[in-house]
Amino acid sequence: MTHVFMSALVAGANSGQIVSFPTDTIPALAVRPDYAELIFTLKQRSNNKPLILMGAFPASLWSYVKGTDAELEIWQQVAQKYWPGALTLVLPASDKVTGAMNPTAPTTIGLRVPNSRVAIAILSQTAPLATTSANISGKPPLHTMSEIEAEFPEVLTLHPTESTELEEPHSNTQGVPSTVVKWTGDSWQILRQGAVSFNCSVSKG
């Protein structure tokens, strides 16, 4: 059994173990950023598929990116509009980001704050975690803690009663990956259309 209560899952995450918990989209595999290579190995994931840094609130994530004051203002405006929610922002990475999270493009980092009471309760007790979908690379994402436990017995999965107690009302983003947009220097590029519609008009101009 790898189902654990939240306190044990948080302790495991803080010590560098891979954990799994529900989010507002699909369940995440998560680990400390400096242990990100463990997820690539576990998932048999290609190095050209970066992980997403997930935090409990926007302020916990801004130290992982770098930009001009004008860019930071734009990014924060977008975050205020879409976070917490199913939008991942790919932004220029600061020196705080480890290359293990994005081995082939370490100059960028994907950031997200999930609209999930369960995920935020966990992330508020850890630093931001490197996350991805729970599946062997190339296979469909797993959608329940029991499926994840069966596929990845070495991963700490959140006990079902903990999820139920904090369960949020069903939303139209559950089961669908996040939308991913990348800052190009003066505008936004949609890399993956996912759970939310994004307005690309927010730019320097």
Rank of each mutant, 00 (worst) to 15 (best):
A70Q: 12
V90L: 10
P169E: 00
I148T: 00
L123W: 06
A119K: 02
I52E: 02
I52N: 03
A105K: 09
E154S: 15
L72R: 14
V90T: 09
E147A: 14
L38I: 10
E167K: 00
V181N: 04
G99E: 08
T173S: 13
P160I: 04
Y64L: 11
Y82K: 08
E151D: 10
T88Q: 07
I74E: 03
A36M: 08
L123P: 03
V113C: 14
V97N: 12
P114T: 00
N115D: 15
P141N: 03
Q77R: 14
P92C: 06
G85R: 05
E71V: 00
K43Q: 01
V176S: 02
K66T: 12
N172M: 10
N172D: 07
A105T: 00
A86C: 15
K81G: 05
P114A: 04
L123E: 01
A56F: 09
L61C: 10
T179L: 07
S133I: 10
P160W: 02
Q77F: 00
E165M: 09
Y35F: 12
V97I: 14
L61S: 10
S94L: 04
Q76M: 06
T104K: 12
Y35H: 11
V180E: 08
W75P: 07
G99W: 09
V176I: 13
A130R: 06
P128M: 06
